[in-house]
Amino acid sequence: MPEDPLFTRWRRLFPVVDPATVKRCFDGLRRAYTEPHRHYHTLDHIQACLRHLDEVPGELEDPRAVELALWYHDIVYQIGNADSEADSARRAVVELRQLGETPDMTAKVRALILHTRHPSQPDCHDAALLVDIDLAILGAAPALYDQYEAWIRQEYKDIPWPQYCAGRRRVLQGFLSDVFIYQTDKFRNERESTARANIERALACLTEPEGSNRGK
């Protein structure tokens, strides 16, 4: 039976580490990203992030650190947790130590993960690209963006619609209030205008009753 391509990619990050440890950590990642309350923050999101990473191979100072941060940046995702990013960073540090990573690498990955809090002020180009990759969905084609909004609502399905609308509006307006949504020229050129149009459309939908024909 062919090996899971996602596991193959993960395994190649740790060529000299005990295979059982590599597999155990991957299985933990898989369990986390397939938790039943997740609809967007899943392995599909991680795979999409990795595809975007592969499009910028020469633009990163430490591509391995960025890749490890992408793998772990949403490993903890609980509705109502005010700082899932910090919890994700802590788990990343623990597991990367088990995988033999140096203190310098674990510190880099921790700092990168913390930049995925939004809003964020990246302090280096690697962090800026990481944040843009995480937010790439905002500038996706309208149909995919609308599906993303539906997935986010599913993750927050236990929140009453008026309360959800108020919170979601704050998040989306926060993106629009910045001079740029994206931090790097690549993402600004490719996705900025589409992201702003998507968000404006989503905000208009958040004024409608739940269950109306959104995304039209």
Rank of each mutant, 00 (worst) to 15 (best):
M1P: 08
R9C: 08
V17K: 13
D27P: 00
L29P: 00
R30K: 11
Y33D: 02
T34Y: 07
Q47S: 08
Q47D: 02
E55Y: 02
V56T: 07
V56R: 10
E61Q: 13
E67N: 07
A69V: 09
W71R: 02
H73S: 07
D74N: 15
D74L: 05
Q78Y: 01
D83L: 07
S84C: 10
S84Y: 01
D87K: 12
D87S: 12
R90C: 11
R91E: 09
V93W: 01
V93L: 06
A111N: 12
L112K: 06
R117M: 06
P119Y: 11
S120P: 03
P122Y: 09
H125E: 09
H125G: 01
A128R: 11
L129T: 11
V131P: 03
L135R: 13
L138I: 03
A143K: 15
A143M: 09
E149W: 04
Q154T: 09
Q154G: 14
E155P: 04
A166H: 14
L172A: 02
F175R: 01
L176N: 01
Y182K: 06
D185E: 11
S193K: 13
N198D: 09
E200D: 10
A202K: 05
L203E: 01
L206Q: 07
E210H: 11
E210G: 00
S212E: 08
